[in-house]
Nucleic acid binder design. Structure first.
Lengths: 342, 342
DNA sequence: CTGAAAGCGCTTACAG
DNA sequence: CTGAAAGCGCTTACAG
């Protein structure tokens, strides 16, 4: 059962496919095509179960109505939720999205961008891994529609939509200070990514503003591809000695670290928040049901996803005109639960 | 900066694009093209930064090298992880995947299938919502390559790859029985989906085999789009009366219910496993860090994803020949943690 | 108001 | 061994 084409309809009616194309694309009025013939075309289209071939349209018009999404890992709930918002907003505009997980690996993301280009995607939404500056610069130089999410490169002039990580970490740390915590630790990742660095900077600034000396022993930097053992070691160093704990609070820079960290803390027989208070970035599901529900910095995922799509689509539709570069920084949402005591 | 086409290379060298196409597609040997000219073509391709236009290839060959994935919700970690495996295996074979979240809504999935068809995807991996039998039948009738995952329709002859839900629930319930639980409840969803029904059936069979009468008051069926309140009501009915609890154990049929359920149990001031033992389907992250880490039925996501891709790709490559229908049922992995006591 | 024609970038019989 | 040509299914100037 072959799919029906424009030509099939045209032949069926003895008219040209130009005509058929016009009416099916809603240009009947514009070309003042008689209502009668209009109706006929539509009826036959329905009867023959006609569906336009997007690939052919894509080849002809140069627009495939699909956007490429490159994130670290779709299995990570943070990106999963973000992906969902992006998919939804894209669908609202008739766009498809192709997902690619880069694992924060620049070689992978480079290859993925190349593949997506071959597939002629109209634009990109990218959460760029570290050391991918060149790839991003190339996109910008070629005037390809794209927007960065979650992180950006300050030195590259391009669209991005991120969150005020500095401010969020600053407030989170202050929250801990206000509740009387003195030795606040931060566990973060060894990645040269602006968002992670801003979190640690905000944390440090809050301490400085409270006239607390920064103790680098309290800042644990894990390798990017960390596992339970890495987290366990840091936790042990920070709160392992029951009678002489280095830290009385921990700010986790990601929920992946946080979830593992809480498991380790509980393995040590420690209580949250009594022994150690906790704040984490990202509102993971796990945080609502763990022993002591965790106070978190939640990101406005819906807004990030929706805005990201709108920015690329706008770029796509106005590719010839030079649009104003969009640099958007959203506020986070601080959700207080029980992990910091009161 | 326009992209370079086959024609550009051909002109550049004063040869035909047929030739260029042959060498770039590795058919040089087959057509005994001189090594010298071969080399030249490759050099120029590189120099001009040539990348084949997949859309054009797709139009010509009828194959787009992309597969459509329809699941309930990519933000749900279960599907996120599955999606990741699928993406990975597809990429290994040079295929892209377009994700669509159906929200278990058959109208949505129908529309998504239609959209994907317009985009000429080569095949589908689908986790079909209830009442989508007709859509699946239509695909089968049209001989379109696809495979069902997570659930299937027993009355439809087609490829699927699922898990032995009956067996898993049977064993989980037996585990609870062996630990001395007498009044085991099951909280599931009001969906006419084979996987959910099999879970409750396995649970009931285990009780029957232990000569325990089935008490329908212990089987709670939530509306599909359940929220915290629905779960809370069920939990309250089951274990709300401290001195006269209906249930002493709960089998959660999904981790989404389970995560909410554990939160409710803890809100009631109850202890797991002392007051109530718990087993849940799906190994959610949250389950490792909650008060009492949860014993779960884990699904072999890697194998499901990988096999699903292999089945569709095989169908795609042999679309004219009638392949044997693949009906695959995988075993689950029972992970014992602390939520059932010992 | 309507149609013939070109062309998007490729692949692939066909001919020599 | 190599090239001219057709055609995948569409859109869109152009002509009348």
């Amino acid at each position: 059962m072959k799919k029906t084409s424009l030509n099939d309809i045209a032949k069926h009616l003895g008219v040209s496919k130009t005509l058929v194309s016009f009416v099916l694309n809603g240009k009947a009025k514009e070309y003042r095509i008689s209502e009668e013939i209009c109706k006929k075309v539509q009826d036959v289209a329905q009867e023959l179960n006609y569906h336009p071939n997007r690939i052919a349209q894509g080849l002809r018009t140069g627009k495939t109505k699909t956007i490429g999404l490159i994130i670290a890992d779709i299995a990570n709930p943070f990106f999963g939720k973000l992906g969902r918002e992006i998919e939804q907003e894209a669908a609202r505009h008739g766009y498809h999205v192709i997902f690619c997980s880069s694992d924060e690996n620049p070689e992978k993301s480079e290859q993925q961008i190349a593949m997506l280009q071959q597939s002629q995607v109209d634009g990109y939404i990218i959460s760029p891994p570290m050391n991918s500056e060149d790839q991003i610069r190339t996109l910008a130089k070629r005037n390809i529609p794209f927007v960065l999410i979650d992180r950006y490169f300050p030195e590259i002039e391009c669209n991005y939509i991120v969150v005020d990580n500095f401010d969020a970490a600053y407030k989170a740390t202050n929250h801990l200070l206000a509740l009387g915590r003195k030795r606040i630790a931060n566990i973060t990742l060894n990645v040269d990514l602006q968002n992670m660095k801003a979190r640690t900077e905000g944390y440090k600034q809050a301490l400085r503003d409270a006239s607390i000396e920064i103790d680098e022993n309290l800042v644990k930097i894990l390798p990017f591809s960390h596992d339970n053992k890495d987290v366990a070691r840091s936790i042990k160093e920070l709160v392992g000695k029951k009678d002489n704990m280095l830290a009385d609070a921990i700010l986790f820079s990601t929920s992946k670290i946080g979830v593992m960290g809480i498991e380790c803390i509980s393995d040590l027989g420690l209580k949250v928040p009594d022994d150690v208070a906790i704040v984490s970035f990202d509102n993971a599901d796990a945080y609502t049901i763990c022993v002591s529900p965790v106070t978190v910095v939640a990101q406005p995922l819906k807004e990030i996803g929706k805005t990201a799509v709108q920015i690329v689509l706008n770029e796509i539709k106005n590719q010839k005109t030079l649009l104003k570069i969009q640099k958007i920084t959203l506020k986070t949402n601080f959700i207080i639960r029980k992990s910091c005591g009161s």
